[in-house]
């Protein structure tokens, strides 16, 4: 058997109780161990609902979700599932429970019944990994948004997850905070092999993922490597989404007849491409 998927969703549909229309329609996806997958979609596309289905906060109306091989519909495994698929939410304030950083990181471990000695060890390690050791005894309301999100990440990390689900975790942060949170999660992805589902509407963030999935009207509209997805500039605009600035500029310049690569993403790539065509030395 091939390596077990971190998260596997099979033909998942979801309808909210009070609603008549399906929020998600027949969504299938697989997150491989160690993979960094970005999920894009405009507000109301169903991407947030999808995230909540991936750690049993919601249960699919149809289809099934497996987290490390465990079906989220199995009641008795729910705590194991949530421990394996830890979630960071959008509002940094509304997910910190305790009045002191260290105790907030402890929250998940206390719930799991981890013995005291081991708990202290795990907390220290988690705080160190997200570089928040210096704030262990601070009150959450004295921290910046980015710092609060890092504390939230530490709280999940301490539970030894195999996957981190981030539901627009950077939407309420300033550019510096966004950068620090994304860096922290990417580091965990690279160094500890934790797979990441990164829900966002910042294209620059999605451009750094291994794979991008675009959700629209509850369905998967596009997926593939960031370059493959973003080069479909027109299609992305139809879906009410942006593409990275350089990809958009390249598309415009191609229309003018300049033979640029259509799948470039960054300023550096654009510089190389343009220089190859226009630099005096060539």
């Amino acid at each position: 058997m091939a390596e077990q998927a971190s998260i596997l969703a099979e033909h998942v549909s979801f309808t909210y109780e009070e609603s008549e229309t399906q929020t998600l329609k027949d969504v299938s996806l697989e997150i491989k161990p160690g993979e960094f997958v970005a999920i894009l979609g405009h507000n109301g596309s169903g991407k947030s609902t999808l995230a909540k289905l991936l750690n049993a906060l919601y249960l699919p109306t149809e289809g099934r979700v497996l987290v490390c091989g465990m079906d989220t519909a199995e009641d008795e495994r729910i705590w194991d599932i949530r421990r394996r698929a830890g979630m960071i939410f959008q509002n940094p304030d509304n997910q910190l429970v305790a009045t002191v950083v260290r105790e907030d990181v402890a929250f998940g471990l206390e719930n799991l019944g981890v013995p005291h000695g081991e708990m202290v060890e795990r907390i220290d390690r988690a705080l160190e990994t997200v570089r928040m050791t210096a704030y262990a005894d601070s009150a959450p309301h004295m921290l910046s948004g980015g710092q609060k999100q890092r504390v939230a990440i530490a709280g999940i990390l301490a539970m030894a997850p195999s996957c981190i689900l981030a539901d627009e975790a950077t939407a309420m942060l300033d550019p510096a905070g966004r950068e620090e949170v994304l860096q922290t999660v990417r580091k965990l992805n690279r160094e500890q092999g934790i797979s990441v589902v990164w829900i966002t509407h910042f294209m620059e963030e999605a451009a750094k993922a291994d794979r991008v999935i675009v959700i629209s009207d509850g369905e998967i509209a596009l997926q593939g490597a960031p370059r493959e997805v973003f080069k479909q500039v027109e299609r992305m605009r139809e879906l009410h989404l942006d593409v990275p600035h350089m990809t958009a500029l390249a598309a415009e310049l191609r229309k003018e007849g300049i033979p640029l690569r259509e799948d470039l993403l960054t300023v550096e790539e654009m510089t190389e491409e343009v220089c190859a065509l226009l630099c005096p030395s060539n």
């Binding site: 500029l249 300049i258 630099c279 030395s281």
Partner: peptide, 24 residues
């Protein structure tokens, strides 16, 4: 910096598009 003869201080994608296509 790489020697492409663009004017200094362009800061919108629009401007860049215009100047780069003119150069092309």
């Amino acid at each position: 910096q790489r020697g492409v003869p663009l004017p200094d201080g362009l800061f919108t994608l629009e401007e860049l598009r215009t100047h780069l296509s003119a150069l092309w």
